Amino acid sequence: MKNSNIVEFRFLAEPTDVNFGGKVHGGMVMKWIDQASYACAAQWSKRYCVTISANGIRFIRPILVGQMITVTARIVHTGKTSMHIYVVVRAGYPKEDNIIITNRCFITFLATDETGYPVKVDPYIPETEEDKLLEEAAIEAKHFAKTLDSDFEEKLGWK
């Protein structure tokens, strides 16, 4: 049986999710993104997974209390032990048809064994044109993250 590469969470934004400005707190949105992408990575790999990086988190529109939230996480690229996941957050009121994208990003997870060492994951093979474009974008994001790490180390001396 082929591993599913998509996970979707749906729920209502609650009053406890908001910041002082009355909008859903960015940290809460990042938590939702991490949870959905973890579920996606664990489902794909059938392993415990750890977050390696979050690239290009975009806050496009605010989320309001009472809106229905949909967090869609999908594998778009795999390495030997890593899974690159594209996450899109959408929001809209349950009684309305106007659903908008509020956030998007790439999250990378590493599959591990019981002792915390990396383990191989099944390869992801894109099928549609959109899948291929998302994989291409994920690869670019992966290269950007590696370049940024090198810059921190070489130019700033940070390890």
Rank of each mutant, 00 (worst) to 15 (best):
E140C: 12
E130T: 12
H143K: 15
V65L: 01
I139D: 03
G21R: 14
S45K: 00
N55C: 14
F106M: 09
N103L: 08
T78M: 03
D34W: 09
I100A: 15
Y124G: 03
I63Y: 00
R74F: 02
P94G: 00
T72Y: 04
E135T: 09
E14Q: 15
F144E: 15
H84Y: 05
K23L: 14
N19Q: 05
P118L: 01
M68N: 15
K2H: 12
D17N: 11
K2L: 14
I75L: 12
V50N: 01
T70D: 08
T115E: 05
G92R: 03
Y117D: 13
G66W: 07
T51A: 02
L134K: 11
I33R: 01
T128Q: 14
T128F: 01
V24G: 02
V88D: 08
M30E: 03
D113N: 10
D34I: 00
K155A: 11
H143S: 15
P94N: 06
T147H: 14
H77T: 09
I60M: 14
F109P: 06
D17E: 07
L134V: 08
R74H: 03
I99G: 03
F9L: 15
P62F: 02
R90Q: 03
F109I: 10
D113R: 09
Y86P: 03
R47E: 06
C105I: 06
V87N: 00
D17P: 02
K132L: 14
R104F: 15
F144I: 14
I57E: 08
K155C: 09
F109A: 00
T16G: 11
C105M: 10
Q43V: 04
I107K: 09
E8R: 12
F144Q: 15
I139P: 08
D151S: 13
S53C: 12
S150V: 06
K132P: 06
C40L: 08
R58E: 15
I33T: 03
G66I: 04
V88E: 08
T81A: 06
G27R: 07
I107E: 05
I139S: 00
W158C: 13
V119P: 09
M28R: 02
F106E: 07
D17I: 07
E8P: 01
Y117G: 12
A91E: 04
H77I: 10
T16A: 14
Q67D: 09
F109G: 03
G79D: 02
S150A: 12
F109T: 02
R58A: 08
Q67H: 11
D122F: 00
I99A: 07
G56F: 06
M1L: 14
A138Y: 00
K80R: 14
F20M: 14
R58K: 13
S53W: 01
G79R: 07
H143G: 11
K155E: 11
I125N: 13
R10L: 04
T115P: 02
I139M: 10
N55K: 13
R10C: 06
I63F: 05
I100K: 13
T78N: 07
P94V: 01
G56C: 09
P123K: 12
V24R: 07
I52F: 06
Y93A: 08
A137C: 12
R61P: 05
W158T: 08
A111R: 02
R90G: 00
N19Y: 01
Q35Y: 00
A138R: 01
P15I: 00
F144Y: 13
D113W: 04
P126Q: 04
T147N: 12
T108M: 05
V119T: 01
V89K: 01
E136C: 13
P62T: 06
R74Q: 04
D149F: 07
W32D: 00
P62E: 04
I125P: 11
